[in-house]
Design a protein around this nucleic acid. Structure first.
Lengths: 127, 127
DNA sequence: CTTTATTGATTACAGTTGTAGTCTATGTGT
DNA sequence: ACACATAGACTACAACTGTAATCAATAAAG
């Protein structure tokens, strides 16, 4: 198995818009990022290139432009990042993390019912 | 209010052992880290120095040695990091994060009952 | 007192990151 | 055909990181 690619913060933003919808040309990526970030066109292209080198993105040539697409799934990435985050900051226990989060970002009623549903589901599968 | 200090991964490990118990001399920090990491003494001292410069650690002189201690609370740090993590990777929603975590690191029965307790508590405070 | 060990301070140095600018080849308008 | 625009490739460069080694001051040991 291959080593986890290190994706920097700025690179992540680029990857994120490609997860939302792909494949996309660099210009599409640039314009979608314009809504959120204030990055120069060249900056985004550098990031795209770095992500390709890191084998996080792939591309196909379409005439003179490239069509970029993610090589790793968002779900896989977020799962691994979450596991390592929780492990580092909370000794691997999610509850304290949720507790701290709840205490700072007050949860909505909907969050709570979603969590309850999640727990119920877990209990049905593990009993 | 001051800007969030950026704490690197290696720096975090040093801060972490100081959160566990402080104040401590550099040698104490070094020896506690030896159990986990394989870092040269000089490396740890560099990291201590950087954390002091970043105003994450403070110290008092004790004869020729320094006694280091954290200037920021673990709770404050983890809360902020969690908020920004959840915001970046899960659009601010904890449930999908917990779901992904559950699906990868199967939760223990205890985790589940802790989560239920947390929810119950929330419901009592917010109704 | 003089040598030695130790502590923090300073310096080193390559790789990564944020943030672009320049170069080169190719498509486009006239 | 020819000048210009444009895409990606390559280059730039300072700050931050990981990972130490060297320097300078001082305490400890003989």
């Amino acid at each position: 198995m291959s080593d986890k690619p290190e994706i920097s913060n700025a690179e992540f933003e680029v990857l994120d818009v490609l997860w939302d919808d792909h494949p996309a040309t660099s210009n599409e990526v640039i314009s979608r990022l314009n809504d959120k970030k204030d990055w120069h066109e060249k900056t985004v292209k550098t990031l795209l290139g770095r992500l390709v080198k890191k084998e996080v993105l792939g591309f196909e040539k379409q005439q003179r432009q490239y069509l970029y697409y993610p090589l790793i799934a968002r779900e896989d990435y977020t799962k691994k990042e979450t596991a390592s985050f929780v492990s580092r900051l909370f000794k691997g226990k999610i509850t304290p993390m949720v507790a701290g989060f709840a205490n700072q970002n007050s949860l909505s009623k909907q969050d709570i019912s979603e969590l309850k549903a999640l727990i119920k589901e877990w209990e049905q599968n593990n009993d």
